[in-house]
Amino acid sequence: MTDTDIRTSVTARLVEDLDAGFVALFDGYRTVVFSTALRLCGRWADAEDLTAEAFLRAYRALAGYDAERIAALRIRSWLLTILTNLWRNTLRSAARQPLPAPLESAPDPVDPRESAEQAAERHETGHELAVMLGELPEDQRLAVVLRHVADLPIAEIAIVLGSPPGTVKSHISRGLGRLRQLHERGAS
């Protein structure tokens, strides 16, 4: 299903029954929201907290919207905007408190369901990249994660970040450049 298909069916169900519709909303978008959360904050437990909080806030907002407003919602970018703002807020409040450990030495985000082989394979391919994402400046990390992990088009990222498309493209290209640099430094 394309995002438009998902959006159409989720919207219809939300208008019909908010709570049952919320389950459809969650099922339709949980993977993109959780993936984004995980690659922004880097830790599995934090990503679960962030995702749950984002969906709860979405529900509370929806409870105050009429059918017309729900029908007009661009749900995916709206959800990711809520998530992004929450993540930025957690960064602000974390900055006021000393971090338990620098992000580079943060433990590998572990999916409790995966097998040992899966973990080993992911460790070789994905782990390095996931850690390197954590070294990107905030704007670049957001733009790269939304473009390449969440697979959003530039126009939609521009909406989520509230920046012009040109700025988004520049964040992505600088972010990718920095990742390549980090990779080469790690390889040498």
């Binding site: 993977t31 999916d111 994402l133």
Partner: peptide
Amino acid sequence: LAALAVDAP
């Protein structure tokens, strides 16, 4: 990067 997408628990 695309492979870093994961299913939500």
